[in-house]
Amino acid sequence: MIEVTGLTKQYGNLTAIKDVSFSVNAGEIVGFLGPNGAGKTTTMRILTCFTPATSGTVRISGMDVSEDSMSVRSKIGYLPENVPLYNWMRVSGYLEFVTRVKGVASSVRHDEIDRVSSIVGIQDVQTKLIRWLSKGYRQRLGLAQALIGDPPIIVLDEPTIGLDPRQIREIRNLIKSFALNKTVILSSHILPEVSQICSRVIIINKGAIVAEDTPENLITGSGKAARVQVTLRGPEHESKQLLSSLKGVSSVKTINPFHDGMVTLNVEMDRGHDVRAQLARSVIEKDWDLLELKSIDVSLEDVFIDLVTEESNDIQIRENSVEKEVA
């Protein structure tokens, strides 16, 4: 559905994205994940024909964005970051404008507005001025304009930014609901969101793709081992020694130091080892009380922070070495 190859965008001397390639199949929900300024918005702007790429090609349903711009545009519904809407318009007037500008036939114009309004749930604010809409409704209206004309591809730039938790959940459910028969690309820097909605995640940092996989594979393939948190009643130093001596334990760290006879430790396990049963047994054998044993999942957040900071560490090291050379 979407084929991106060797995409590079430069603003003067600044390279926003560099040699980005990926593809998206029909019906997928793909999440763009990255810190602010990573190049997510730039990539989306190129996909939506807002800005041309410096080099590289984007093909959407086999059509090149620079050559068949008009037909590509009619296949994409786009919601930019911060939801730019005409504040002086009424909701119904705005939707009518969008149907006209997207070339929806006049005979089905009102049906289309009704259809989209009921999907995103804005029927009861049709006569309101956009200026007076709450943030949540603005977001819904933004989604509505993207859905008008029933485009097969939806591109959403930070669709839940600035919303309260309840609204975030509503918008997520909305995206999931209409994503059944559409291809969706969304960007976010909120990780749980991406792992919940998306079938595939592209992590982008400093203008380049650093990882691309399903959320599950990213977590398991990250090299991050499973961890357990243990709270026991016993001496701190001895218990640390005992736990580190167990086979399959790579490190033991103190979370809460010895207090009221209790200590909380964080035990990191080697990959493929589950030492929980063994751990519990050895604590009991020592005649200490095992108060809590909790396994901690590696989250996408850990993977993300790892991938993104790994890169910056590299750069840090490189910069340091350059400084040394200069000195």
Partner: peptide, 14 residues
């Protein structure tokens, strides 16, 4: 200023 140009320029209008 309001950023609506971004949406306008991605609609199928030349």
């Amino acid at each position: 200023k309001s950023g609506t140009i971004e949406l306008l320029l991605t609609y199928p209008v030349n």
